[in-house]
Design a binder for these strands. Structure first.
Length: 614
RNA sequence: GCCACCAUAGCUCAAUUGGCAGAGCGCCUGUUUUGUAAACAGGUUGUUCUGGGUUCGAGUCCCAGUGGUGGCUCCA
């Protein structure tokens, strides 16, 4: 799904392309300072596919300014200007940047060893600093840069591809908001053209675009932002996924539960969700003088199901599963299609296990998630182990419990041979977690599946079981959701398949297209025959010609088009055309039905049929 | 939430410096009965996002709101 850098073995940071982009950022800053002499410059690093530079501008930047800057950049690049490095003392640096407050702040932090010169990570105190100069512009910078502007092809640089954006100084929303200008730079014009082509391709795959084209979902302003409405085809897709996972879970010993979307605030005070995450919850609702919350999570409800009966060590593990809808307040600027919404359904389950069962149960869950991802052909994900940030106070529970839980996750990953990245500070507030992260078509990362080990809720809800030795003991909880949110998962899935779902997921699996009106009866017969075998099919009996029907259904990515005319009626065949544009010609109706059924059962990734039966 | 930009028919988009709101697709009616990516003809489709303001006159200019987009921040 991603279009990463497939460039040799050199890390991006050491590549020529990185230097080109880093240097292009300096040239852009020079041009912007010419346009806005009063502008203050912040930082300007290379990023994936390009670079940016942050400015504190005296006025909002316009399209005309962008055009001017881009033109000016190309002019500078077409001249020969060396990128000259010079080592300077802190005092010299302060003199050079005396009228650049952001640079002065960076210099102070560099000298004190708080940041690197991208304004980010903590580093050693710097005894001396480096500056780079090209033409009339000098920037505080560690480098490296290209030797000269001649190393950058002006025709491979563009800053008009992405609109300027707001960005907080040092990523802190309490500080000055700067104007970030993005640019892209490549080694040659062909690479730039390819980049443009990929951007256009990405828009076509965007789940918001495809969601409308394929009639999957809408987000209606009268209903509310971030509250998607599933249209019949989208709901069919979603329902197919739900039924599939439900069946898998039943096989693996999960038990269904159903709980309401609203709960007494005491429930969330007990669980700790309130007030820890008050900011992402909706205001309490008054019910006869008591306060109720739209639930932000399902786990508290499941805990109360656990406590509804005394539990024996023989009862564990208990695995409660529910497609539970939750509501979270998200800032309006963060809402996006199906991938960031305010009401969504989690394919949630909570496993209540004995400590001696934790490792096996955790591994079982990870295997389940791997199974789900691989059945859908989603191999492009990374696993992230989110642990507690020791400096933060947003977590609940003893540190010893956290250590035990983290160790259990690490053990499970190692026993399963699964790679993961450790990310302190990414834990849930009640425990460490293993997340499965994928990128969407515009390269944004989204958390999908998640598994979390939790010693805290069992304590807060006073969960117990009676062990073999007749002692009351505390179970451990595992929270897990292979899809994460159905909404987000399906959004990503739409982009993953570019709207061309494999037949087992496709809302409509086959359309029967009669060539003439006289073939309608046969088309209807096929429709009811395939429906009786559980397929999602329809006969297209509209009064329009065959060719336009083919075009229409191909646009909708219908896996199988069955064209039937005189020859097919006589021979009881269907003429099969795949959406991949393969015309497979006539095949016996029974052979198609069998082949399609096999494809669907086997969850084939393409619409190809195994034709051995014909 | 913050910064910037955007909003015209169901969809994609036009509309000269402020001067009668249009096209293609779709939809409806009729003709056509078709063998693999758009048959033909006619017709229909508007609170130009909402509310104010400027003006003889606003889709166009100004203000506010709503919604969307790109970022930032946030994200159990």
């Amino acid at each position: 799904m991603t279009q990463g850098h497939k460039m040799a073995e050199v890390p991006y940071e050491d590549s020529q392309l990185y230097k080109i982009r880093h240097s292009a950022a300096h040239v852009m800053a020079e041009a912007v300072l010419e346009r806005f002499p009063a502008a203050k410059i912040a930082i300007g690093p290379p990023i994936e596919d390009g670079f940016y530079y942050d400015f504190d501008l005296p006025a909002a930047i316009t399209d005309d300014d962008i055009k001017w800057v881009e033109k000016r950049m190309k002019k500078i690049l077409s001249q020969r200007h060396a990128f000259a490095m010079r080592e300077v003392s802190p005092a010299e640096a302060r003199a050079i940047f005396h009228d650049q407050p952001y640079k002065l702040e960076l210099i102070d932090d560099l000298v004190n060893g708080r940041v690197d010169d991208n304004g980010a990570a903590i580093s050693e105190p710097a005894a001396s600093l480096t500056v780079y100069t090209q033409n009339n512009f000098t920037d505080l910078c560690r480098g490296p840069h290209v030797e000269s502007t001649r190393d950058i092809n002006p025709k491979a640089v563009s800053i008009s591809l992405r609109p300027p954006a707001g960005a907080y100084w040092r990523g802190d929303e309490k500080r000055q908001q700067l104007t970030r200008i993005y640019g892209t730079a490549w080694r040659n014009p062909a690479e730039l053209a390819e980049h443009r082509r990929r951007l256009e391709e990405a828009i076509k795959r965007d789940h918001r675009v495809l969601g409308e084209k394929l009639d999957l979902f809408i987000i209606d302003s009268m209903v509310g932002k971030g509250l998607p409405l599933w249209l019949p085809d989208g709901a069919t897709l979603r329902d197919t996924l739900e039924r599939w996972l439900r069946d898998i879970q039943i096989e693996r010993g999960y038990l269904p539960v159903v709980t309401p979307h609203l709960g007494n605030i005491e429930l969330y005070k007990t669980s700790g969700h309130y007030p820890y995450y008050a900011d992402s919850q909706y205001s309490p609702i008054d019910v006869d003088g008591d306060e109720f919350l739209l639930r932000p999570m399902n786990c508290p409800h499941h805990c109360r199901i656990y406590t509804s009966q005394p539990r024996s060590y023989r009862d564990l593990p208990l695995r409660y599963a529910e497609f539970g809808t939750v509501y979270r307040y998200e800032q309006s600027g963060e809402l996006r299609g199906l991938t960031r919404v305010r009401g969504f359904t989690v394919d949630d389950a909570h496993l209540f296990v004995r400590p001696d069962q934790l490792l096996d149960e955790f591994k079982g869950v990870v295997r389940l998630i791997q199974h789900v991802f691989s059945a859908l052909g989603m191999s492009d994900f990374r696993a992230r182990l989110g642990t507690r940030d020791p400096d933060s106070d947003k977590y609940v529970g003893d540190s010893s419990l956290w250590e035990t839980a983290t160790a259990a996750i690490i053990d499970a990953c190692e026993e399963l041979g699964m790679d993961y990245q450790l990310e302190p500070g990414e834990a849930a507030f009640y425990g460490p977690k293993l997340d499965f992260i994928v990128r969407d078509v515009l390269k944004r990362e989204w958390q999908l599946g998640t598994v979390q080990v939790d010693y805290n809720l069992p304590q807060r809800f006073d969960l117990e079981y009676v062990d073999r030795d007749n002692e009351r003991k505390r179970p451990v909880m595992i929270h897990r959701a292979p899809f994460g949110s159905l909404e987000r998962f399906i959004g990503i899935l739409i982009e993953h398949f570019a709207g061309a779902f494999p037949p087992w997921l496709a809302p409509t699996q086959a359309v029967i297209i009669p060539i003439r009106e006289s073939h309608n009866e046969y088309a209807r017969e096929i429709e009811s025959m395939l429906k009786s075998r559980g397929m999602r099919v329809k006969a297209d009996l509209q009064d329009r010609n065959m060719r336009s029907k083919i075009k229409q259904h191909r646009r909708m990515n219908i896996p199988w088009l069955l064209i039937v005319g005189d020859r097919d009626v006589d021979a009881r065949t269907v003429s099969l055309r795949l959406r991949s544009d393969e015309d497979l010609g006539a095949m016996p109706l029974e052979a198609f039905a069998d082949g399609a059924a096999a494809n669907i059962t086997n969850q084939g990734q393409s619409a190809c049929l195994n034709r051995t039966q014909s």
